[in-house]
Amino acid sequence: MTRRRSPKFDAVTPLGLTLRYTALCVVLLITIGPMLWELSTSLKSPFEDVYSSTPQLLPRHPTLHNYDLVAQTIPIWHFAENSVLVAVLGVGGNLVGATAAGYALARLRFRGRRLVTGLFLSTLVLPGEVTIISQYQTVTKLGFGDSLIGVALPGMIGAINVLLIRNAFRSIPDELEDAAVIDGANVWQRIRYIGLPNVKGILSVVAILSFIAAWDDFLWPLLVLQSPNKLTLTVGLSYLQGEFSADPRTIAAGTMIALVPILVLFAVLQRFFFRGVGEGAIKG
């Protein structure tokens, strides 16, 4: 699609470009500068002065020593496994549970459908922190206190995900599904061959967001977990801070172990994320 461009409005002047890219680079520096500084600190050897009044971005003798050191002090790789487990449970639960409910609410007629949709909507005005104490009591009574299942459980089917997926299913034209019904396709076949292929965009957004939410969550695992070997990365790191107030290099190494995987994952999947977010905005 070519649009007629009015030169006055759209012209890319060298000055305009320079200003734009300068501004972008300043923001870039503010955004990832702190992260790069932390990365650099994590690679500095114990013999290099990290407090120097003339800051050095590039470590003089880069070393992975600090990563060994942090793993010797807390079982950080085990914490990472715990975080992955919680995140995978969150992604799986939402993809299955929220998709099933979203489909039924969008495409199947049944008594009580509006009431059920209303219930899901009503919890959106309820910040999660409001119910966290009572949730903690519930999870403890169910016998999942101080366990990774207990950490994962409340986030496994999110109301917002049910509603997002429901909206995506609603935008499929009725004729498509009516034709399948006439051809004798049952509900499972219609979900499999008509529903799912049309909501892939929002499913990838839900999957990415659930993974990040679980990986980053702090308050809830902090409440639920007590045993030192069951901690997730975020909670483990918050304890590391107390033990290591003396050495910023080790804390930096721990921080990088939590930070780098999620950023890499996002950078790889960002295409699907931004595309899905765009689709969601259009279909509303």
Binding site: G97, A98, A100, A101, Y103, A104, L105, L108, R109, F110, R113, V116, L119, F120, T123, L126, V130, T131, S134, Q135, Q137, T138, L153, P154, M156, I157, A159, V162, V181, N186, V187
Partner: peptide, 28 residues
């Protein structure tokens, strides 16, 4: 198009989570 209980089969898991971890905690 579907049996009467199919929608409930699909909705019940999500509804159970909503009840246990949002609605009940709110009242509680």
């Amino acid at each position: 198009a579907h049996r009467w209980y199919t929608p409930w089969l699909l909705v019940v898991p999500a509804l159970a989570f909503l009840g246990a971890f949002s609605l009940w905690p709110a009242i509680n």
